[in-house]
């Protein structure tokens, strides 16, 4: 599999380590009143789509960037790859 790194171009998947669903970016507030339930959902409830999936990859043998990769789990086609840091900052800016 080839992952199109936004800065470095197409790179062999063996340079990367996979973490999981990009939903992991939406970490709840640990001090919230119902943190228990929020963290349980965050960690254990997951969609498992046959189709478009946003997921987190770490470029371990590369620039050590975390990427959010949009990939079709059926065809394996990769539609997009963004720096996770950029995605996180955008989310923060949008509140």
């Amino acid at each position: 599999m080839i992952i199109p790194h936004p800065l470095l171009g197409p790179r062999d998947a063996r340079e990367f380590v996979y973490l999981g669903d990009a939903a992991l970016l939406d970490r709840p507030d640990g001090l919230a009143a119902d943190a228990d339930r929020l963290f349980h959902d965050y960690l254990y409830l997951r969609d498992n789509p046959a189709g478009i999936h946003r997921e987190l990859w770490f470029h371990e043998h590369g620039d050590r960037s975390w990427l959010v990769v949009t990939r079709d789990t059926v065809t394996h086609a990769i539609l997009k790859a963004e720096l996770a840091g950029d995605v996180a900052r955008k989310r923060r800016a949008n509140g």
């Binding site: 800065l7 470095l8 171009g9 620039d63 050590r64 960037s65 840091g85």
Partner: peptide
């Protein structure tokens, strides 16, 4: 730029990551 280095045998600087 990403994937590049500048300089020579005396001093080389490699891009290793965003801002690194």
């Amino acid at each position: 730029e990403p994937g590049r280095c500048i300089g020579d045998a005396s001093l080389r600087i490699l891009w290793t990551g965003p801002g690194q």
